[in-house]
Simulated scan of single mutants.
Amino acid sequence: MPTLFTTPLTPGLVAHIALEAVNLQRGNTWVFESLSLQFAEHRIGLIGDNGAGKSSLFRLICGLDQPQSGHVYLPPAASEDAAPWVGMMFQNSDEQIIFPTVEEELALSLRHLRLSRAEAQTHVRTWLATRGLADWAPRAIGSLSQGQRQHVCWLALLIGAHHTLLLDEPFASLDLPGQALLRQEMAAAPQQIIVSTHVLDHVRHFERVIWLDRGHVRADGPGAQVCAQYEADVATRAAHAINKT
């Protein structure tokens, strides 16, 4: 039976997420076959074509999908009231945000603390004020731009105090100032961050990048090296496509 454990894969990897021999099938399609990965580095990028399995990998780590076989390992919680180890930002913020105001949405990330509604509201407002965003607390989500909604999703991850943040195409709906701000905040965040993106410049400097190709790991190594390999492969495929026309 597929299982999600909160114990480490091997001794000494207490703070690592790992997948062991994971098989994931959707309909008649195998998304992953015997996929094994460990995620130890502070900054990890995921790259690859559409349909390569990047979002599916995130959903497995979060427990939103369950494999047909194999295991997903998460580190054990430090206490009963600790935040979930993993937090995820979806590609589309409208699929993630469920409450009508910013402060209510951020308060959802504090549910593990078992605060009263008033306590959670105070915590959120104080936290936003420390970031210079006190006026955001009562704002209606419907009044925000798509980029601002994406920023709310990012704030929800930060206030939730997760150990690992999964960001699925986090720059897609951001303008250049928004991208610059997110990059700065990501660089300053103490959490482990795993980023799925088609914009290679956002992960080229990462210590590790994984190139997924139809559910398999095509390359895994330093960001600059793996991004260059992927770019070369894309250029080769594009040239072949042109030659066929």
Rank of each mutant, 00 (worst) to 15 (best):
M186N: 12
L182E: 13
G48M: 11
Q184P: 03
A83I: 02
D65Y: 13
G27D: 14
G160D: 01
T7S: 08
V124R: 01
E105A: 02
E33Q: 15
P190M: 09
R204F: 10
Q148A: 03
F90P: 08
Q191L: 09
L13V: 10
S69R: 10
P138M: 06
K244N: 05
E41W: 04
E231F: 04
Q192Y: 11
T7Q: 10
T101L: 02
D213G: 00
F99H: 08
L24V: 01
E41L: 01
A52S: 15
A52M: 13
I17H: 05
R114S: 10
A83G: 02
V86L: 01
G215L: 11
D49Q: 15
Y230E: 14
P177K: 01
H240C: 00
Q96P: 11
A180G: 03
V209Q: 05
V209N: 06
W211P: 12
L176R: 11
D201W: 02
F58C: 06
L167F: 04
F206L: 07
A18Q: 14
L19V: 06
P100E: 07
Q148V: 04
G48D: 12
S143R: 02
A232L: 12
V226S: 04
T6H: 14
P138Q: 09
I193V: 14
A137V: 07
V199L: 07
R43N: 04
L113M: 09
A134P: 00
I210H: 04
E105M: 03
N23S: 07
A129Q: 12
Q68D: 14
P11K: 08
V86A: 02
L19P: 05
A134M: 03
C153R: 03
G221E: 12
L60M: 03
G223M: 07
I210G: 01
R59N: 13
A15H: 15
A140S: 14
M186A: 10
G142M: 05
A107P: 05
A189V: 10
Q68T: 13
I141E: 07
Y73I: 00
L113N: 02
H162C: 05
V209P: 07
T29Y: 13
Y73E: 06
E105I: 07
T245I: 08
G27L: 04
G12H: 10
A78I: 12
P8A: 05
Y230V: 12
L24Y: 04
T236Q: 14
L157Q: 07
G221W: 08
S69E: 13
T10E: 11
G51W: 12
A228P: 10
L108P: 02
V14E: 15
A172I: 06
Q229S: 14
R139F: 02
